[in-house]
Design a protein around this nucleic acid. Sequence first.
DNA 1: GGATTGTTAGAATCCTTTCCCAACAATCTT
DNA 2: AAGATTGTTGGGAAAGGATTCTAACAATCC
Lengths: 329, 329
Amino acid sequence: MPIASIVSDTQRSPTAAETALTRRVDLTTLRLFIAVCDEQNLTRAAQREGIAASAVSKRMNDFELAFGVTLFKRLAKGMALTPAGEALLHHARVTLLNVEKIAVELSEYSQGVRGHVRMLANLSAIVQYLPEDLSAFFAAHELLRVDLQERPSAQVVRGIEEGAAELGICSAETDSRALEAFHYRYDNLVVVMRPDHPLAGREKLLFTETLDFDHIGLHTASSIYLRSQYAATQAGKTMRLRINVPGFDAVCRMVQANMGLGLIPDRAFEVVGAGMGLRAIPLRDDWGRRELKIVVRDAAQLSATSRLMLDYLRTIEADRLGRVGGRAS
Amino acid sequence: MPIASIVSDTQRSPTAAETALTRRVDLTTLRLFIAVCDEQNLTRAAQREGIAASAVSKRMNDFELAFGVTLFKRLAKGMALTPAGEALLHHARVTLLNVEKIAVELSEYSQGVRGHVRMLANLSAIVQYLPEDLSAFFAAHELLRVDLQERPSAQVVRGIEEGAAELGICSAETDSRALEAFHYRYDNLVVVMRPDHPLAGREKLLFTETLDFDHIGLHTASSIYLRSQYAATQAGKTMRLRINVPGFDAVCRMVQANMGLGLIPDRAFEVVGAGMGLRAIPLRDDWGRRELKIVVRDAAQLSATSRLMLDYLRTIEADRLGRVGGRAS
DNA sequence: GGATTGTTAGAATCCTTTCCCAACAATCTT
DNA sequence: AAGATTGTTGGGAAAGGATTCTAACAATCC
């Protein structure tokens, strides 16, 4: 993005003088600084942190001196931030948040947790397969912990590329660029409707048959939404959308409220919409069968724990298929 | 996302014991730790950091003791990470990166820069209006600096909500939820084509008229792509997409290469596709005129510098319209 | 004048680093 | 095969540095 970089400067590498300054930053100073900002008063901040006011004063002054910056305007009633102070406050907050994460995560290790796996996954995977897969995984490896976040498929890829997590699960149609990809699960889309809907008696449906009725859409970045819009376009028809909602449960509730048809994966319906008295009819179109894939940056360089998880996720469906003798649901 | 939170634990608040542990983390230890990880060797790490090897050893041991965790497997050939060590490494890296940002930013303040504004904007704003608007703004306020990142409109909103930046610019059609929104600019979409294209002689075009020809799409999260797909659907037709590309310049290059029609904002064409010998024909549909809006979390609580920028961006078009006497381009 | 506010100074304390040495494993030399 | 050499991490004592505390001091507000 060349045009952006003209005015952006976050990416440039720090000079030697700046790396020297890096060493003058320390966490207690940042913590105290935040306290002073919160209280807008040095004395109260010192009390809150259980330290003498003079110590705080000295730290703030030394810090300002070291960086050649004034952080506060010293008023008679307390301390007010300068622009430089505001900039520091922002970074100080996220830095301390990070440090807190360190403490939390390490203390988990000390209590026996032997590994952490950071994962990103799309909604379909999280709702349908991950709860069971992960709990089965935990049964075999009690000492592991997973940090899972939901994101649309495209951003799962982005997050893995950027190293925000090690394992990602996204729709197989998503472009995963330089990442390594492995098969995870197959998915089947079903049309969800009330039992009194005109189509409720059907065994199977073509997507085009549903286009004469109102639809309830997922959020616009979801792959199901994008794919169904595309299918409608291909058929030369229009999807009549009443509303876009953020989750499968919300879709089912909207269907229940007679807002229209919903299009969600079958297992999601079993999990989320089961007790709601709704009908789910399989989609006959070829794109009604979807694939979820696992993406990683470099399988060879994965941490031992992530490697374990990856191997597990890759074999689990193979096992299941072997037992059942075919591709189930 | 209740189902996700069962297995996710990033959001939970730290216990008292953990906040106590927070104080045992310090940056030099983290820096040394990273050095040891990089070198996989305590002695070399100590040399690199200009410190005695035994001091490093002591720090690592104390740290392990404090958290009750083993970070390394001590091998004869050096030190290898345990899973806990890998987890720490990840967080340590991002923490130090943040600290470096602090040093960089503050040293800029010390050199006279008086304020930082963090912004997110969509591609349309960045390519068309921000370069001029920002440079004009800088002319009036030499001492300010802007940190600008490109994101699709929906994620601009998300970023502002999460506090990643203070000012955002996105398409007016984007749902900005609880954020405050202000008008920024109007936009007009044009159809870009080669001069030898059948439609090249036209003065204006309806989007439906272009649907008989191949199109070049932007990336699927872009508002132009979403909106034009929707329009095609509404017209009961199909958009014949040859390829999706990530930027306006790429669209123009594809058009030049005879891949099809492009749909981009007019000013983007002037900036990016001007010298490429292409035709740009205005879109006559009502949605061909788009609006860009500025979003902020709470205008009343904005920092002084961001406030300045917001006020500037809000007035600049009003001025321009006043001078020109109407809505230009 | 009393009660805020933040700042300064000197002494006590705490912590870190350094230095030297020990134990150990792997590798090379005799 | 035995011994020497190199490189590794770990531990204890002393020196040096940094941080903190108490106490006293200015400036402002009510």
